[in-house]
Protein backbone atom coordinates (compact mmCIF):
# COMPACT_ATOMS: atom_id res chain seq x y z
CA UNK A 1 0.00 0.00 0.00
CA UNK A 2 1.58 3.23 -1.13
CA UNK A 3 0.20 6.44 0.24
CA UNK A 4 1.35 10.02 -0.03
CA UNK A 5 3.28 9.82 3.21
CA UNK A 6 5.17 6.61 2.60
CA UNK A 7 8.92 6.52 2.13
CA UNK A 8 10.25 4.29 -0.63
CA UNK A 9 13.79 2.98 -0.64
CA UNK A 10 13.64 1.22 -3.99
CA UNK A 11 13.36 -2.09 -2.17
CA UNK A 12 10.61 -1.49 0.33
CA UNK A 13 8.08 0.97 1.61
CA UNK A 14 7.73 2.50 5.01
CA UNK A 15 4.57 4.34 6.00
CA UNK A 16 4.82 6.10 9.35
CA UNK A 17 1.12 7.01 9.35
CA UNK A 18 0.15 3.34 9.48
CA UNK A 19 2.60 2.85 12.30
CA UNK A 20 1.16 5.78 14.24
CA UNK A 21 -2.33 4.38 13.72
CA UNK A 22 -1.16 1.01 15.03
CA UNK A 23 0.34 2.68 18.10
CA UNK A 24 -2.87 4.61 18.73
CA UNK A 25 -4.98 1.44 18.42
CA UNK A 26 -2.60 -0.36 20.78
CA UNK A 27 -2.83 2.46 23.30
CA UNK A 28 -6.63 2.43 23.10
CA UNK A 29 -6.72 -1.31 23.73
CA UNK A 30 -4.32 -0.88 26.64
CA UNK A 31 -6.48 1.90 28.04
CA UNK A 32 -9.63 -0.26 27.74
CA UNK A 33 -7.92 -3.12 29.59
CA UNK A 34 -6.57 -0.74 32.23
CA UNK A 35 -9.90 0.99 32.82
CA UNK A 36 -11.73 -2.30 33.21
CA UNK A 37 -9.69 -3.07 36.35
CA UNK A 38 -10.80 -2.43 39.93
CA UNK A 39 -9.94 0.96 41.32
CA UNK A 40 -11.37 0.29 44.75
CA UNK A 41 -8.19 -0.47 46.71
CA UNK A 42 -7.87 1.17 50.12
CA UNK A 43 -5.14 3.79 50.31
CA UNK A 44 -2.75 3.73 53.23
CA UNK A 45 -3.27 0.04 53.97
CA UNK A 46 -1.37 -3.11 53.17
CA UNK A 47 -3.03 -3.14 49.75
CA UNK A 48 -1.06 -0.15 48.48
CA UNK A 49 2.34 -1.33 49.76
CA UNK A 50 4.86 -3.17 47.59
CA UNK A 51 5.20 -6.86 48.45
CA UNK A 52 8.81 -8.00 48.65
CA UNK A 53 8.45 -11.64 49.78
CA UNK A 54 7.41 -10.45 53.18
CA UNK A 55 10.60 -8.46 53.80
CA UNK A 56 10.49 -4.88 55.00
CA UNK A 57 10.67 -2.27 52.24
CA UNK A 58 14.11 -0.60 52.13
CA UNK A 59 14.39 3.22 52.06
CA UNK A 60 13.52 4.79 48.71
CA UNK A 61 17.04 5.88 47.91
CA UNK A 62 18.39 2.34 48.11
CA UNK A 63 15.78 0.82 45.79
CA UNK A 64 17.06 2.65 42.72
CA UNK A 65 19.56 0.75 40.61
CA UNK A 66 22.28 3.25 39.77
CA UNK A 67 23.76 3.61 36.31
CA UNK A 68 27.10 2.08 37.27
CA UNK A 69 25.40 -1.25 38.04
CA UNK A 70 23.49 -1.47 34.78
CA UNK A 71 24.84 -3.70 31.98
CA UNK A 72 27.45 -5.16 34.26
CA UNK A 73 26.87 -8.50 32.58
CA UNK A 74 27.35 -7.05 29.13
CA UNK A 75 30.73 -5.52 29.87
CA UNK A 76 31.73 -8.63 31.81
CA UNK A 77 30.76 -10.86 28.89
CA UNK A 78 32.76 -8.75 26.44
CA UNK A 79 35.67 -8.38 28.83
CA UNK A 80 38.25 -9.46 26.27
CA UNK A 81 37.05 -6.75 23.90
CA UNK A 82 36.80 -4.00 26.47
CA UNK A 83 40.23 -4.80 27.94
CA UNK A 84 41.70 -4.08 24.52
CA UNK A 85 39.59 -1.09 23.53
CA UNK A 86 39.33 0.96 26.71
CA UNK A 87 43.10 1.32 27.36
CA UNK A 88 43.46 2.82 23.87
CA UNK A 89 41.60 5.88 25.14
CA UNK A 90 44.63 7.09 27.02
CA UNK A 91 43.59 10.72 27.26
CA UNK A 92 47.10 11.87 26.27
CA UNK A 93 46.82 14.43 23.51
CA UNK A 94 49.94 13.43 21.59
CA UNK A 95 48.47 9.92 21.31
CA UNK A 96 45.45 11.47 19.60
CA UNK A 97 47.77 13.05 17.05
CA UNK A 98 49.73 9.83 16.66
CA UNK A 99 46.51 8.04 15.71
CA UNK A 100 45.83 10.71 13.14
CA UNK A 101 49.28 10.29 11.60
CA UNK A 102 48.83 6.51 11.57
CA UNK A 103 45.54 6.84 9.71
CA UNK A 104 47.06 9.27 7.23
CA UNK A 105 50.01 6.94 6.66
CA UNK A 106 47.90 3.83 6.18
CA UNK A 107 45.55 5.72 3.87
CA UNK A 108 48.52 6.92 1.83
CA UNK A 109 49.77 3.36 1.40
CA UNK A 110 46.30 2.13 0.43
CA UNK A 111 45.70 4.93 -2.05
CA UNK A 112 49.16 4.72 -3.61
CA UNK A 113 49.20 0.94 -3.95
CA UNK A 114 45.62 0.21 -5.02
Amino acid sequence: MVSATSLTSGFGIWDPILWVLAIIIGLVIAWILWSSGFSTYKKGTEQARPYLSGNAEPPKGEVHIRAGNLYWGFTEGLKGYYQRIVPLHTGIMTDYLLWMFWVAGILLIIVMVV
Binding site: V86, H89, T90, G91, I92, M93, T94
Partner: peptide
Amino acid sequence: NVDEIKELKE
Protein backbone atom coordinates in the same frame (compact mmCIF):
# COMPACT_ATOMS: atom_id res chain seq x y z
CA ASN B 1 53.70 17.39 31.03
CA VAL B 2 51.24 15.88 28.55
CA ASP B 3 51.48 12.48 30.18
CA GLU B 4 49.95 13.94 33.33
CA ILE B 5 47.23 15.94 31.58
CA LYS B 6 44.73 13.14 31.26
CA GLU B 7 41.87 13.82 33.63
CA LEU B 8 39.54 13.03 30.74
CA LYS B 9 39.98 9.56 29.37
CA GLU B 10 38.16 6.32 28.49
